[in-house]
Amino acid sequence: MTETVVPEPTPEQAALFSRVRRMMLIAGLTTALAVAAVLVAIGYRLYRAEGSSPASNTTATLPKGARIVSTAVAGDRLVLTLDIGGAVEIRTFDAKTLKPTGRLTFAPEP
């Protein structure tokens, strides 16, 4: 059997091979870093996610004569606009627990 003899690369070819190897190493490390970042982000979102909250029956009391003008959801807040005897009031509640988080009352200037 005869073996094929591969000629030695010239210095320019050797330099080119080393540059290609270095660029491939950089590309491989960058790809590995990107995949690791995606996996970390997915893991963070999975472990940070809160389970679905149990359904709750809550009764909120309104002042006498008040009526709900509008409702809205803003992020994780439930927003109610109330008309209380001619004065407008906005009440916010946490959407998951339905606990009051704020109240904004509008009054005319004296």
Rank of each mutant, 00 (worst) to 15 (best):
E89T: 11
T101A: 07
V73T: 12
G75D: 10
T92L: 10
V79G: 00
A95S: 14
V79T: 06
A74K: 08
T71I: 04
V79I: 15
L98I: 10
R77Q: 13
D76I: 01
V88N: 02
A74W: 01
L98N: 11
V73P: 06
L98Y: 15
R77H: 13
V88F: 05
T81D: 08
D83E: 15
R91H: 07
K96C: 02
A87H: 09
R77V: 00
G75A: 07
V79F: 02
A87T: 05
A72E: 08
T101K: 14
K96Q: 13
I90P: 03
K99C: 00
L80C: 01
L82H: 01
G86I: 08
G75H: 05
T101I: 13
E89N: 04
A74H: 01
G85E: 14
T92P: 08
L78N: 03
L80E: 02
T97M: 11
P100N: 03
L78Q: 07
G85V: 09
R77E: 14
G75W: 02
L98M: 14
A87R: 15
D83K: 04
I90D: 05
K96F: 09
R77G: 03
G85Y: 04
I84D: 06
A74E: 15
A72S: 15
G85M: 09
V79K: 09
K99E: 15
T81Y: 04
A87N: 10
G85S: 14
A74N: 08
D76A: 12
L80D: 05
G85K: 03
V79R: 09
G86N: 02
L82C: 06
D76W: 00
L82P: 05
I90W: 12
V79E: 06
L80R: 03
R91N: 03
T101D: 10
L78G: 02
I90N: 03
